[in-house]
Design a protein around this nucleic acid. Structure first.
Lengths: 109, 109
DNA sequence: TACGCTGTTAGACAGCAACCGAACACAAGG
DNA sequence: CCTTGTGTTCGGTTGCTGTCTAACAGCGTA
């Protein structure tokens, strides 16, 4: 059976259906986070590791943003070796907040 | 011709089409402001003065929130005597940010 | 075991936005 | 003119969040 790595064990994901609207909006109201989401939206799932995003902040700050997106139910993360791959939870999030994601990222800032 | 009152002359409205997404999201990300918008959404236009909203903040703060909504292109205001009446700019805002308003206020927090 | 790479955590700091009381501005009506 | 009602502006406080550096933790590999 697949053995869960030590890092993966501390990775907690929020269920989009349980996320308060306030949390979702706060997550979407930051330009760096929207940039991450747009990036994920145009690439295949599980192809982008955290470090591969071109962001205007240091990696500690980026790590913080990924954590916010995770606890808002917007992304899912999975470890592959030392890298942490990302996936946009489009269907799940859409089902909890119909139209919100599209209205937010299908558009320039 | 209709003479504009002294107060009305200082009332500036933002064109929703010119509003940056960041400004729109910041405006929608506050619970007090969403409460105002939901209230406007279920009442006839120009029927609600600022003071008629049941808000958990003092009037100075409420005044601030109305100003934010105005500069985000979400509401229009018009003076009627000493009172300032409000209208939700649903069509204009929807045209600039399709689906965003509905996704935000057609739902409990 | 040692190294390099990726990402997280801890601690500190700065800026901003929500909030309030007080003072002010304007309108309506006695 | 004075009073009352409505809303705005000003100054100040406070709490939160985005940011950074530094240190740390896992993972893969030589």
């Amino acid at each position: 059976m697949p053995v869960e790595s030590a890092r993966a064990r501390t990775l907690t994901h929020a269920d989009p259906a349980e996320v308060p609207l306030q949390v979702a909006l706060d997550a979407l109201a930051d330009p760096v986070r929207r940039s991450i989401l747009r990036d994920l939206a145009v690439h295949d799932e599980w192809t982008r590791a955290c470090g591969t995003f071109d962001l205007p902040v240091k990696k500690a700050t980026a790590s913080h943003h990924f954590a916010v997106l995770r606890s808002a139910g917007l992304i899912e993360q999975r470890d592959e070796g030392a890298r942490r791959l990302n996936r946009l939870r489009r269907a799940e999030f859409d089902s909890a907040f119909p139209g919100l994601l599209a209205a937010t990222i299908d558009r320039a800032d």
